[in-house]
């Protein structure tokens, strides 16, 4: 800790009673670290401990050999993957319009992005329940236009879960894409068209590769967040297509199998950490590339 003495941003009076000098602000870190150690890290460690009774891996063994659990983990990956692909595909043109559409477009699209971002996930899931139910607006609209003659089952299906999750994750996916896209020089596209490339070819060979870091960052972020969704699948999905977070809740609420629930929670924690580690790596690579091209 004495290493802090070489910091020059805050000068300190020499010779405190302890005999070494520390900027007083340093001690301000202590309450937050203690608080999080007690109320954040300790509960997570407790879960790990509960999942390993007497150091036995039986719960993990059970998870990775029982078809029910494997199906739930598989379903979690499947839904998260579909949601990620759909979200990024929708976010891409939206971010493009924000980046290259001019000030007025940017303002309107930013407002449209931020309003739902600030309304709670629970309320937005509630909205989708109302919209997608059998007598809901979506079915009413489809019947009124004559596209269908009987209400479609939209709620309590994977479709309902996916549409609700895409809606919630879209702002998270747009922002990293926008950050990357606004730095792309559109004159590169002009140059490629002057050289005789079609728009599609120019896009595929020039613009898209430049935007790829944004695509990766936004996809990994959406996927990471999707893995842990609980509220949306619980309200819009059917118990048959349960995701891992619902299974964890069920082990604690209904089955009262705390050991197994804790092991499932640890599995989710590790999956999320891996996915988020990837996100960090992509961002670091991006920054390094940015620095290099900045110097060139």
């Amino acid at each position: 800790m004495t290493a802090t003495t070489n910091d020059r941003s805050v000068p300190v009076k020499a010779g405190s009673s302890r005999g070494f000098r520390l900027p007083p602000a340093f001690w301000l870190i202590v309450p937050s670290v203690l608080f999080l150690a007690l109320f954040f890290v300790f509960p997570l460690l407790k879960l790990v401990a509960i999942s390993l009774p007497d150091g036995s891996l039986e719960y993990y063994h059970q998870i990775f050999t029982t078809p029910v659990f494997l199906r739930v983990i598989g379903e979690t990956f499947r839904v998260s993957l579909i949601v990620t692909v759909v979200t990024v595909a929708i976010a891409y043109p939206y971010a493009y319009a924000m980046a290259h559409g001019g000030r007025a477009v940017l303002l309107v699209l930013t407002i449209a992005l931020l309003i739902p971002f600030w309304v709670s996930l629970l309320l937005r899931s509630f909205s989708w329940v109302v919209l997608l139910q059998n007598s809901g607006l979506v079915n009413d609209f489809l019947i009124a236009t004559g596209l269908i003659d009987r209400p479609l089952r939209l709620i309590r299906t994977p479709f309902g879960v996916i549409i609700g999750m895409v809606h919630i994750l879209l702002p998270y996916a747009v922002l990293p894409l926008y950050t990357v896209m606004k730095k792309i020089d559109l004159r590169l596209m002009e140059a490629s068209s002057i050289c005789g490339a079609s728009w599609l070819r120019g896009f595929a060979r020039v613009y898209f590769p430049l935007s790829l870091p944004g695509v990766m960052a936004s996809a990994i972020l959406a996927f990471t967040l999707a893995l842990g969704f609980y509220i949306t699948p619980a309200l819009l999905g059917s118990p048959r297509d349960m995701m891992i977070a619902q299974m964890i809740a069920g082990q604690f609420n209904e089955q009262l199998n705390f050991g197994l629930g804790a092991a499932l929670a640890v599995v989710l924690m590790v999956l999320t950490a891996i996915a988020f580690g990837l996100f960090g790596a992509v961002r670091a690579a991006l920054q390094m590339r940015g620095r290099r091209t900045g110097e060139a």
Partner: peptide, 22 residues
């Protein structure tokens, strides 16, 4: 990392962990 990690931890994991400890 410690200060920011509650933001990325799945909230269901926190919920059950806190439930057990609390």
């Amino acid at each position: 990392g410690l200060l920011l990690s509650p933001m990325v931890t799945p909230v269901i994991v926190l919920a059950v962990g806190m439930y057990m400890v609390f």
